[in-house]
Design a protein around this nucleic acid. Structure first.
Length: 571
RNA sequence: GGACCUGUGGUGCAGCUCGGAGUGCACGCCGCCCUGUCAAGGCGGAGGUCGCGGGUUCAAAUCCCGUCAGGUCCGCCA
């Protein structure tokens, strides 16, 4: 139907007759005998010179046959890849007429996302969406190649799985053949892939769709895509190397530059220095611990187990209302307040300045090599809270836009095994209950469980958590000690994970794995703040698909088959 | 479940504080003119439930209450 793509036409083809197909991106009218058409296909646009009587308008689908010609002198368009040539003596065949689209596809105006999503099929015709989705395809292809090259075998796992009421809320699928019983859509192929290890697929991967019925965010959709992998007879370091190879290959494919090796820090270091387990390393602003200097302070606001400080470069110019707003933010995160100290020519400017003794003043003024014009923010509280509050402020005040700055990858290792206590007084697993504790901490499971580190690790890029993984427990004795710590009885464990634990009795190899979000990775590669920009058909924050209208009612027949009745609201 | 922001011809915005005729800008659309444009240009034109409902008022896009939709965030996401 066509010979080549619009943007592939160049000077070397001058004189030849070619046929292209595409959409009319723009028509420029010059009277009865001359009009210019920009014809667009997936490659770009080429200009066709046609008679003014040719009746095609924006977004008509056309097939144009014309002679490749150099443009007359002085009419070359340097801003266009094909700006030196045009198609002349054109025959225009209208393959499909088109109504004017509900919004312009030329990026001249911003478009409300509501409108874009309602007409997503038009939105993805736009150059930016074409670029983003093709970037995503290139990343997928690279990831597959990298995993294949490392000896991994792609295995598909079921979308219809058994309910495992643990972790994220699952999407439920009613069974027609077994009315009253349900499948769930997997929040991840976690158990399936561990069973693959028992099954002897010692290097598994999959580009897997995962589904979680939790509230949506800029970086979270109901359904998202992960590069999921698992391997047997490997250490944590092996897994990190497999993943790094795939991610760095993808980065190279996406950006043209292969990043250096991925550094790492422990979870405890990340919390201490950055106040978060997903630090954005594109900028410095490291938290400082002033607890020692304020151990015996007279300043009431600072009489707390921990005093943490954050220097904000240039922050001395913050207005009082800006500081009030930061204080409110700190309070909403659980802090009792936020102390601030402007570093000025004349010393420290702060409501608290007159309460500080000489040594304390000196310490404040030296935080993170503070300079005149900076501001130092302090939170005094329990250690973890102080870190997290300042970590959040650090991100809010320091993080550049997604599209800016280098790509700074970092491994976060040695996550705690347990975090907090649930309503029933049981410890909660920080990762999941099959995570192997750190070998040095096995003795602490029963004595000091909150100190137990795990062999769980995250990959973080520019403040985004890309993914996480762990070495799994393959020994029944350790598993039962973890279940015990979590308050999961033998019966309960059997009920929830019986088929996994049962399978492990038949020879479970030591294994470990990882999964990372491709949506997030591609969004960062594309410089997008929102993963919807790299997903063809995303849902809104309230879980609606504005194009299809989903979710929707089903027919009475469908309900009858499934024996489903909708209860009245509030019942 | 909660907080905040947004909603005005097809699209993007201004108008809203301080109520006074649907007023304006850019793009698009339709018609006419135009033989070298490429953000083409010129002339003319059509196009509105100011998200929806209620209230205050002589009078509401504008003030108040409620509600819906979209967004950002908190909770949630083992």
């Amino acid at each position: 139907m066509r010979d080549l793509l619009c943007a592939s036409i160049d000077r070397s083809m001058t004189g030849s007759v070619v046929t292209v197909c595409g959409w009319v991106a723009k028509r420029r009218e010059h009277g009865e005998h001359l009009a210019f058409l920009d014809v667009r296909d997936r490659s770009g646009i080429v200009q066709a010179v046609v008679d003014g009587s040719v009746d095609v308008r924006s977004e008509y689908v056309v097939r144009i046959t014309g002679t490749v010609s150099g443009r007359p002198e002085g009419t070359v368009n340097d801003r266009l890849a094909t700006g030196a040539i045009e198609l002349s003596d054109c025959t225009v065949e209208i393959l499909a007429a088109a109504e004017p689209p509900p919004f312009q596809l030329d990026d001249r105006n911003d478009i409300d996302e509501q409108v874009r999503l309602r007409y997503r099929f038009l939105d993805i015709r736009r150059e930016k969406m074409q670029r983003n989705l093709r970037l995503r395809a290139a990343v997928n292809a690279t990831l597959r190649r990298a995993m294949d090259a490392q000896g991994f075998c792609e295995v598909e796992t079921p979308l219809l799985w058994a309910p495992t009421p643990e972790g994220a809320r699952e999407f439920v699928v009613p069974s027609r053949l077994h009315p009253g019983e349900f499948y769930v859509l997997p929040q991840s192929p976690q158990i399936a892939k561990q069973l693959l290890m028992v099954g002897g697929f010692d290097r598994y991967y999959q580009i897997a769709r995962c589904l979680r019925d939790e509230d949506l965010r800029a970086d979270r959709q109901f359904e998202f895509t992960q590069l999921d992998l698992e391997a047997s007879f490997v250490t944590q370091d092996d897994i990190l190397a497999f993943v790094a190879e795939a991610v760095l290959d993808a980065a190279e494919a996406a950006t043209g530059v292969r990043p250096g090796t991925i550094g790492s820090m422990t979870w405890a270091e990340a919390l201490d220095l950055y106040g978060t387990d997903k630090p954005d390393l594109r900028f410095a602003m490291v938290l400082q611990d002033l607890s020692a200097a304020f151990a015996n302070t007279e300043v009431k606001a600072f009489s707390a187990p921990t005093v943490k400080a954050l220097r904000v470069p240039g922050g001395a110019s913050f207005s009082r209302s800006k500081l009030d707003q930061l204080t409110e933010q700190a309070k909403s995160l659980g802090a009792k307040g936020l102390a601030w100290f402007r570093i000025t020519e004349d010393g420290i400017d702060s409501p608290l300045a007159r309460f500080l003794n000489e040594e304390e003043t000196r310490v404040i003024a030296r935080v993170d090599d503070a300079q005149v014009g900076d501001i130092v923010l302090c939170v005094a509280d329990e250690y973890t809270l102080a870190c997290k509050v300042l970590g959040t402020l650090r991100g809010a005040l320091g993080s550049p836009p997604v599209s800016e700055g280098p790509h700074h990858y970092v491994w976060i290792t040695e996550f705690p095994m347990f975090e907090g206590i649930d309503e029933d007084g049981h410890l909660m697993a920080a990762h999941h209950p099959f995570t192997m504790p750190h070998p040095d901490d096995l003795d602490l499971i029963e004595t000091d469980p909150l100190k137990v580190r795990s062999q769980a690790y995250d990959l973080v890029l520019n403040g985004w958590e890309l993914g996480s993984g762990s070495v799994r427990i393959h020994r029944a004795d350790i598993q039962s000690r973890i279940f015990k710590a979590l308050g999961i009885s033998d019966e309960e464990a059997d009920n929830r994970f019986g088929f996994l634990l049962g399978a492990f009795k038949y020879g479970a190899p030591p294994h470990a794995g990882f999964a990372f979000g491709i949506d997030r990775l591609v969004a960062i590669f594309a410089g997008e703040e929102n993963i919807r920009e790299v997903i063809a058909y995303p849902k809104t924050q309230s879980g609606n698909d504005l194009m299809t209208g989903a979710p929707k009612d089903i027919t009475d027949r469908q309900k009858r088959d499934l024996r489903i009745k909708i209860a009245a609201k509030g019942s």
